[in-house]
């Protein structure tokens, strides 16, 4: 769900600041951690923890809970992010780590170092610049959904055991009636891959399958309520 996540954000440079802004706007709880030799950021009304990332004790003192905390590495320099990813991965093998990178080269290294996902600053910006030029409508549509310019949003919904849809076929769910569009599914029987071409096969839904859906917030909520009903 949007918001309500606990996030530990490393770095508070230009990228870090934007991450903090967007994450808090979405209702997440963000803790900012900077390196101890960084200059103190003045005039900002937020709590900033200073640590030395080379010391394990310092990182332990953050009391990171790898199961609920998302770890964002948004330091200004790739070398630091790389080091941080390596260290965090070594300390918390099961944590979700996301890092910022500034080139495909660094992206590869960060992924290798153990980042779950990497956001390539320039790649993403370039893509956005190009698509807003060549496919303006698509860009605007995605903005509406992804960046929540209105009440539309994309979400994932896992099928729970004994839910009304457990064991049902995909075609039996009246998405249209709910005003919802199904974008993709993950059918656990076929692996973790996202399947977009769901319409070619009528997938059987079981426990742990994931639906990626887009819709108005209240419609999504309605579907969710329906889903939670147990058979």
């Amino acid at each position: 769900m949007y918001g309500k996540k606990n996030i530990v954000l490393f770095g508070y440079g230009t990228t870090g600041k934007q991450l903090y802004k967007k994450l808090t706007e979405a209702g997440n709880r963000v803790r900012v951690v900077v390196e101890s030799d960084d200059e103190m950021i003045e005039g900002e009304d937020i709590d900033i923890l200073k640590i030395n990332i080379k010391h394990n004790e310092d990182i332990f003192s953050l009391a990171i809970d790898p199961r609920c905390d998302l770890l964002y590495c948004g330091m200004g320099r790739t070398a630091k992010n790389l080091f941080l990813v390596l260290r965090l991965r070594a300390l918390y093998p099961e944590a979700t780590i996301l890092s910022i990178s500034n080139s495909p080269e660094s992206t590869r290294k960060l992924k290798y170092a153990g980042a779950n996902s990497v956001i390539d600053l320039y790649e993403a910006t370039a893509r956005r610049t190009v698509s807003s030029l060549t496919k303006p409508a698509v860009t605007k549509a995605l903005d509406e959904i992804v960046y929540r310019r209105n009440d539309l949003r994309m979400m994932e919904m896992a099928i729970e055991k004994y839910s009304v849809y457990d064991g049902k076929k995909l075609s039996e769910i009246p998405f249209r009636k709910f005003g919802i569009i199904l974008i993709a599914i993950i059918d656990k029987e076929l692996g973790d891959k996202l399947i977009f071409s769901y319409s070619t096969i009528d997938h059987m839904l079981d426990e742990d399958d994931v639906l990626v859906i887009v819709g108005k917030e209240k419609d999504l909520a309605k579907l969710q309520v329906k889903m939670l009903k147990k058979n």
Binding site: L23, A26, I100, L121, A124
Partner: peptide
Amino acid sequence: PEEVAGMMGMVYAGEPVA
């Protein structure tokens, strides 16, 4: 670029699969 990264970070925090 930083804002785009921020946006993407925000979306990721919400729905990793999405």
